[in-house]
Nucleic acid binder design. Structure first.
Lengths: 146, 146
DNA sequence: GCCCAGACGATACTCGGTCTCGCGAGCCGA
DNA sequence: TCGGCTCGCGAGACCGAGTATCGTCTGGGC
């Protein structure tokens, strides 16, 4: 789920980080992404938005934002690595395997399932990661895969 | 969950693949891993078990086994990429964040949760991936992190 | 024992990501 | 106003995972 650029810059500022030009540009670019994006996508977008911004800076900002919970790294079934901007709260993602659009979704009882799985295996479960893949409402109308 | 080397070689044979020396060696090495392992681990283990086996072969076998569902690629919360040997059926993993040992766990009602998430978002969910992280029974006794 | 498709090793390459270095801008106290 | 400190920056080397290519080898069916 795309988020507002102001939420990114505001969160950065609130966390005591400086609000620099490259960070504003990247916040804008990331907030404009409707679905997931790869590192290569963002580096390319950054290059055309402001060629002065370096690759290292893009990765630094990605790491910073993922620390702040504003973006999440996710791994597609294809093995690709992607990033997804999202609200900084515990939730999961449903990702359209056709257009890449993603929706946030709340726990919906997953916590109990995780507890049950922990009970059965004897593990003390501390964290879980769930990703759902399928077709978004828009792509269902058109059928098929990319 | 570690699997038997014979299951690997047997599945390979049944699927019409040749049972070569390197594949036997790799099947043995993989079945000996109690938890997850990284590509680097396996390449190193292969190097000491049989220095004649090349890096490309290790990756070829990993890809082959993941096609056959005998191993699964998974991404740790640290961002590391790892592999995990497992039975070729639909299930999920509980991974010990201390010793790396993993247990397979059946669906436990996750399918309904996934359906519910799909219903709420309007997505038609086709696949899901869940990974649980925590402490295995053995590590709970010792407390703390790695 | 022969033969050949499939498997192999070596190696170069791509790609995502990290590290290092030196520079510049902003902030703060003197 | 000056000087020092810190943070963020760009450039570019580097690293590790994984892929592609190519010529050679070999398992296993005949």
């Amino acid at each position: 789920m795309a988020i507002d650029a102001n939420l990114i810059t505001g969160t950065l500022e609130a966390a005591g980080y400086r609000l620099t030009g490259p960070r504003r540009t990247l916040a804008e670019l990331i907030s404009r992404e409707p679905g997931y994006f790869t590192a290569a996508d963002l580096v390319a977008a950054t290059g055309s938005a402001d060629p002065a911004i370096g690759r290292a800076t893009v990765f630094r900002v990605l790491e910073l934002l993922s620390q702040l919970g504003l973006i999440e790294r996710l791994d597609l079934p294809s093995g690709e690595r992607a990033y997804l901007s999202c609200e900084p709260s515990h939730h999961h993602h449903v990702i359209c395997s056709r257009c890449g659009r993603a929706a946030d979704v709340a726990d919906c009882g997953l916590a109990q399932v995780a507890d049950e799985m922990g009970r059965r295996t004897g593990y003390r479960v501390a964290a879980h990661r769930l990703a759902l893949f399928g077709l978004c409402p828009a792509c269902q109308g058109q059928g098929g895969q990319p």
